[in-house]
Design a protein around this nucleic acid. Structure first.
Lengths: 232, 232
DNA sequence: CGTTCAATTGATCAGCGTCAAACTAGGTGG
DNA sequence: CCACCTAGTTTGACGCTGATCAATTGAACG
């Protein structure tokens, strides 16, 4: 582990309230690794040995069943993953693989559980993080069950625009095939959904998106904080 | 609150490890209410004032968007709900309504957060519960995205059979219209899915289910602990 | 400059939703 | 006790959404 990584980790919500001593204990046992793109970090079903933190790059969480595969989400720097499995000492429900060259910190799950027992501030942070993730997944289910694929796409774009600062033009940070899978559709269908949004002033060329008529697409998307607000 | 309710609550995983003192504090501020069927307990978007616990009866968690509605899950005695919102002091993401006459305990969210700060055993239980719920929802998403509606139904039936003790014949405890919504389909479609399972030895009459050829339906359902095991 | 993989497009099809009607079953009141 | 009402369930017909398959275009990289 590089010393230069430490402040970045310490500043994450999960770690920034805990006692220095506990933090040191966690860091002591931690590994840092640089992974090449498309590397499988975790295979679904494996026991959960480490809590992972993305320091740099991006990691895909995905799931398989019966030769089918779906992308659950994509994580970027600062995100932690498989916290729930680490805490419960249960098998991982999702696989993880890098999308690009990525730097990942791995803290032995056992250490996480041990520090969790000792440090109340950390326990508090774990609960907040878990509750946050839980609510995120609930929002995802609501989107899947209540919206058509075009509506999901429209809302995804509005959300991304906001995240990117709100300007008319911004860029997709995810491959379209993966975006399709996240949104619960096929790549072919995503292509068509994109065309279907053209009358609403949405233009997508490569990974450049521009939203010409924000009012129009909002009428279609009908975003609500109860599904689309990543905070709260 | 009836005294007779207390032992039942105390024995729930969420409360059975905590200090007597903390438990008393929680119980002191708690209300118990008997609700008639089809009563709205919580409306999605409202601030979360109480942690709820189902003592008796059953409660539906559901979500709305754009005049559409979907059932997220159904809770029975012993289940707690909106724990995540209570902990984060955030608006409820789901509505809740009783299905039958139900008895529900309501603990002020503020008390929950206060005791959470003081009692480490309780904090631990909250984390376990949240991690458990999180994993439950993840399994749900995997089912929705990776399986067809018939496959979801088949797995639901196998899961229910196990829960009911494993005998060939058992009974549906949920109205079909709600089951359909839980599984992400329409009631009409559920009817057809049921018929489609007949060649696999599944017979459903009213709410009586019998699985004549367990091997056959298992071949179709391909259950896996990573989606269908409610434990872990 | 060719290889490779993603993205697009078109044609076709299956799954599932919608709508309407018929058929239950459980509960109510005469 | 029976007729009737209501609400859930089932069935059929139909159409839309989105998946599949196949072929083409496009873009990145060695």
């Amino acid at each position: 582990m590089r010393d230069s990584d430490i402040p970045a980790i310490r500043s994450l919500p999960l770690f920034n309230e805990m006692a220095e001593e506990s933090f040191t204990e966690l860091v002591r046992g931690a590994y840092v690794q640089n992974f090449p793109p498309h590397m499988e970090l975790i295979v679904e079903g494996d026991p959960c040995d480490f809590l992972h933190i993305v320091v740099d790059g991006s990691v895909e969480l995905l799931a398989n069943w019966n030769d089918r595969e779906t992308t659950m989400t994509i994580l970027r720097e600062g995100a932690t993953f498989i916290l729930a499995a680490a805490i419960r000492d249960a098998p991982n429900l999702m696989s993880a693989r890098t999308l690009e060259r990525s730097r990942v910190i791995m803290i032995p799950a056992e250490d996480v559980r041990a520090v969790f027992e000792k440090d109340h501030a950390f326990a508090r942070a774990v609960v907040m993080e878990l509750a946050y993730c839980y609510r995120g997944v609930i929002k995802g289910v609501k989107g899947l069950k209540l919206r058509s694929s075009i509506e999901r796409l429209a809302n995804y774009l509005l959300k991304l625009q906001k995240k990117m600062g709100g300007s008319e033009t911004f860029t997709l940070s995810v491959e379209k095939r993966r975006l399709a899978s996240i949104l619960g559709m096929t790549p072919e269908n995503l292509s068509r959904a994109i065309k279907a949004l053209r009358p609403y002033g949405v233009e997508i060329d490569g990974n450049k998106v521009s939203i010409k008529k924000p009012e129009d697409i909002r009428v279609l998307a009908k975003p609500t904080p109860l599904i689309d607000d990543p905070r709260s």
